[in-house]
Design a protein around this nucleic acid. Sequence first.
DNA 1: GCAAGGTC
Length: 936
Amino acid sequence: MHLIIAEKNIVAERIAAFLAGKQKVHTKRDGAATEYTFGDTVVMGLRGHVVELDFTKGYSNWRSEEHPPRSLINAGIEKHPTEKKIVALMQKHARKADRVTIATDYDTEGELIGMEAYELVRAVNQKVTVDRARFSAITKDEITKAIAEAQEIDFNLAAAGETRQVIDLVWGASLTRFLSIAAHRGSDSILSVGRVQSPTLAMIVDREKEIEKFVPEKYWMLTLTAKIAGEEVTARHVHGRFTVKTEADTAFAGTRDPVTVKEVITGKKTDKAPTPLDTTALIVGAGRLGLSAASAMNKAEDLYMRGFISYPRTDNTAYPKSLNLRQHLKMFAGGEFERDANHVLANMRAAPTRGKKETTDHPPIYPTSKGTRAEIGDDVTWKLYEFIVRRFFATLSPDAEWKTLKVNLTADTEPYTITGGRLVVPGWRAVYPYSKAEEAILPEFAVGDRLTLTDKNCEEKETQPPARYSQSRLIQRMEELGLGTKSTRHEVISKLIGRKYIEGNPMKPTIVGRAVTESLEKFADTITAPTMTKTLEESMENIAAGTKTMDAVLTESKTMLSSIFDDLEENKEAIGQDLMDRTREEQTVGQCPVCGAPLRIRRAGNSQFIGCSGYPKCTFNTSLPPATWGNAVRMNEICPIHQLNHVQLLRKGAPAWKIGCPLCSHIKTNAEAFKMLPGMTDAGIEKLNSVHIYAISELAGISPDDLMIRLNISRPEADKMIRDAETVLGLLRKRTELKKFISSHVAPRRGRGHSKVSAAFISKGIVDIAGLAGAKKSDVMEAGLSEAEADTLLTEAARVIHIAEMKQYGIPTITLKKYVAAGYEDPAAFVAAHPAGLSLATGASVTTICKHQKMVAEQIGTEPPKSLSKAAFDTGIASLTPLEIEPEHLTALAFAGVYSCALLKGTAVQTLARQTGITKEQLTEYKNKAKKVCGK
DNA sequence: GCAAGGTC
C-alpha cells in the first residue's frame, strides 16, 4: 500500500484526484482527519504541524524555585502530538504501508512538517520506504512527476527549521516568564517576549518617540494664478519649500507681471500595471477597503475554503507557467465581471506582470472560480473578492500611458512651473479602480505666450511628524525586515493588541508596551532588534547547507541568552519595580476628590471599581459594571470639572462602552437615590457633593458630628438626615433584591429587559419582593408578562417571602430546607398540617415538628394543632408496617391524621378517600388487611 | 500561562 501525506487536506484531495485518473476516489472523513483512497493508494492531509515543542514535565510551574526562568535555557524539550486523530490515522496506515511519500509544501517549514510525519511513521514501521515529493504547483503534471521522481527527505533543511523552533521557544518562554514574574503580573496579563513580536513592538514604540520629539518647522509655498485664453491655471514656484521667511517674502514681492512662457516640455510616461497579489499586497489592498489585517485574512481564508480564490498565504508574485490565464478569464462569462473579463481578453498584454519574489510553494493569489454577490454573501467579503478579481485582470492588462506636459514660466524674474498629465492609454486602469489616477488637463501653451497674473499666494505651512503605522504599513515593514512570515504577520499584530501592548488605528503603544520595550532594549536588546531574525536565518542556511550543525547553533544561542540572564537577574528588582511603577500609571485616573491620593481602576476577579489608593484610610470608591461588560481602561480625555481621566469598558467584538468621567457618572447614578430623601433638592445634592459626600451609603455611614461640621447644620438636623439616609438605603436594598428576583425568574425578551420590568413594577408601587407577593395579577401582567408567567412569579414571590418569614420565626435553616422541599414554607399551611404527615414528608422528627408548629402558631396568632408524642407516632407507624401500604399513600394518610392501624380501622372509607385522594377500592383493601392484622 | 510556525 502506498501512503501519501500532504501538508493540508485540500492538497491531499487534489493529489488524490490527479493520481486516481479514472478510478473512483473513496473519501472517509472522521472529524479533522480525512483520507482519500483509490486502488492501493491512500492520500491524507495533515494540518500543518501535528506536533508541538514543549519543555519536559517539571518546567510547567512558572514560580517553581527549582526551575526559574533561566533554567529553561537548558531544559529538556519534547514533542507532543497536537492533532491526535490525524496522527492516529497516519500511523494506522503507516503500519501496513510499503511506501510512504511525504508531499508537504516545498519550503523549509514544509520540510520540517514532513520530517515530523517521517518520525511518526518510523515509530510504528521501521522498514517502510519513505520518500519525498517536491512540487511547485498543484497541477496534474507536476504532481504526477513529483511522485514518480520522489527524492529523499532533506534532513538538514528540516533541522534548520527545528533549530528555529527551539530557539524561539527557549528565548520566548524564558524571557516572557522572567519579565512577567519580575513585574508580578497575573496569568491574564503576562508580559510576552519573542523574536518577532518584540522587534515589531519596538518599531511602533520608536515611531511614537519620533512623533513625540518632533519639532514642527515652518515653511512657505508660493503659488500664482494666471489666465491664458480665458482659462485660469495655477503655477508653483520652482524653489518649492522656502524655509527662510525673508526669502519667501522677497520671491513673493518679485512675483509680478509680466508672466511669460519660457519652455514647454511634453513627454510620455508609462504607468506600470500592478504585479500579482501575495499575502502582504492582499492585506495592503484590503486595508484600503477598510479591513484590518486579521479580518482580511479571515475573509480570504473563507473565500479560499469555498473555492473562490487560490491559497491566500503566499509570498509568490509570479504566476506559474502552468496556470492557464485565458481560461481563468473566460470563466467569468455570464457573471458580474463578464464585460471587464472580455475587455482584458481582447487587450491582453504579451506576458502577465511579475513581481520580485518567486517562490515554489504556492501561486500568487488569484480567483479560481466565478462567484456572484449572492453566493459570496456578506458585503465586505464580496468587496475583497472583487479586489482580487480586478487585481488579476490588471496583471494581465497593458500598462497605462500618460502624456505629460511641463510648462516653465517666469513672473518677472521669479521662476514658476505648471505640470499636467493626460491618460492616453488607460490599459489596466480601465479595470482596476483602486489607485486613483488624477488627470490635470492644461490649455495649449507656446513659448513666448503672455499670461495675465490674477493672483499670488504665499502659504505658511508646518512640517508634519512621521505618521503612526497603519496595520498594512506595519506588515509591509515587517516583510522588508524579514520579520514573521506571510501566515503569521497579521497574527503578530493581533497578539500585540491582545497583550495590551498597542492600541488604536493607526497603532500606538500603550504604557505597558512602551515599558516592556524599554526594559528589553536596556537589558536584552538582541530580542528587540530585527537582526536576530537575520542572524537566525543565516544560521539556518548554514545548517541546511551542512556547513554547521544544529547543536553548534543552539549552543551559541544559549550562551548568548545566558549572558543576557546574567544582566537581567542582577537587575531583577529594578526591572520589576520600573515596570510596576509605569504600568500603574495606566490604571490611575487622577486624584481622589476626598483625600487627593491617586485614584485607580481596581480589579478583583470579575468585579471592578474605581478606588482611592489611600485605602483603607480613605474609602472613596465608585462602582463600575462587572468585567463581563468589558475591561475598564483609562482614556486620554480628561473631565473639565473633576480633572479625572474618562474611563471606558472594552470587550472583544463589542463597541467600547464609554463611562466618561467616573465621578460625573457616580454623581449622576447617585442623584436618583439622594432624591428619595425627604425634601432633597438638586441644590442639596450639590451641597453634599461639595463636601465630598457622593453616595447615600456614605451619608448613612457618616458620624452626626462630622456631618454637622461639614454642612454647618444642627445636631437634630444631622441626626434626621442620617436616619433618612438609612431608611432610603434599606429601601434601595430591597429594590435590588426585587431586581435580582426578577432577573432570575423572568426570561428577558425583546422590549422586555429586566430593568424595564422592574421600572414598570416600581411605577405600580411594587418596590420589593414582599410587595410583589401581595400584588394584583393584572398589575404584574401590565409589566409585559403573560398570565402564566405572572402566576409563577407571584407564587415564587410568595414562596420567597414565606421562607423569609419562617426564618424570622426561628426555624433553623437545615430543617426549613426540608419543609420547603416538601412544599410547606407557608407558615399558615405549615401550622395547619398534621405533624404525622409532616414528619413522613420531610423526615424531621415529630417532636421537632410539634415544637416548630407551636413557635410559628404563636407568632402568626393561630391555634397550634394538638401535639403528638414521638412514642405514639412511632408505635402507630409500626402498627401499619405489616399492611404494606405504598409510601405515598402512607404519607397522605398521615396528613389526614391516620398514622396507626387503629385509626385506619376507625375511619370511614368515604372520609379517607376525600381527605387523601386514594381510591376507595385501595382504601378498602388496606382496611381489610388492617382488620386481619391488628386489633385482635 | 510562555514563542513562532504551520493550518481551520
